[in-house]
Design a protein around this nucleic acid. Structure first.
Lengths: 110, 110
DNA sequence: AACTCGTATGCTCAAATGTGCAAATGCGCC
DNA sequence: GGCGCATTTGCACATTTGAGCATACGAGTT
């Protein structure tokens, strides 16, 4: 089987492809942003810390669903929680997530 | 049922949540980046335009799978194609996709 | 200790997704 | 027209995912 691109180009490509661990981390991270419910939650938390009840009421999503998605977001290190009495407040763990969303908005030209 | 956050904050949140169309567009876009195979392809194409055969050989993925994923990426407007004889060359449609990946890398601190 | 409220978990179901074989298409060449 | 190669498409299958009900848990209040 012949190569269609020349060997030098191929070497360059091979050299610059990120390692598998990086690729997996990246795609796993993006999949955390790849659902409307979660995107909504992230946007809301970018504005203000909130508890599950408020989030689900304001965003008009089922409380259980909200809780499930928050767990995912927490696993992805996007969101953190803090307890105050019986209320658990959620907020963004790292403001850099906003840069990601903005880059997406830029790309899509929204 | 009582509100747990005050009314002013709630109004602010409601006002700043992007419209549904925006949220859908964003999450759909991120889901295009949320698979290892596709991330791999995007990274490769960021380095050099390539055809399906080379992509699949170099990235070590099944050619059919590669083709399927390229179709998705094309539908997401991330990738474009150009025909030269019987070979179809794929490349990034918009370099801003690299900023998105970089924002992801920044976030993950990779 | 019983009750209430905020939240999390287990489970089930439907839908979406990724993969690769088999077959079809498109294009150049003899 | 027939052949070969690059690519796409249709299909089937296994797997993953998102949703929400029912239920459990955890912390404050009485």
């Amino acid at each position: 089987m012949e190569n269609l691109i020349d060997n030098d180009s191929e070497e360059t490509v091979v050299r610059y492809i990120p390692r598998n661990a990086t690729l997996y981390a990246l795609s796993e991270f993006f999949s955390a942003c790849s659902d409307v419910t979660r995107t909504k939650i992230i946007c809301a938390l970018a504005i203000s810390e909130m508890c599950v009840t408020d989030l689900s009421r304001i965003l008009e999503i089922n409380q259980t669903t909200c809780s499930h998605q928050l767990r995912l977001l927490r696993a992805a290190d996007i969101v953190k929680q803090r307890r105050d009495g019986k209320i658990i407040y959620y907020s963004l763990k790292n403001r850099k997530i906003e840069d990601v969303l903005l880059a997406g908005v830029e790309f899509l030209d929204l």
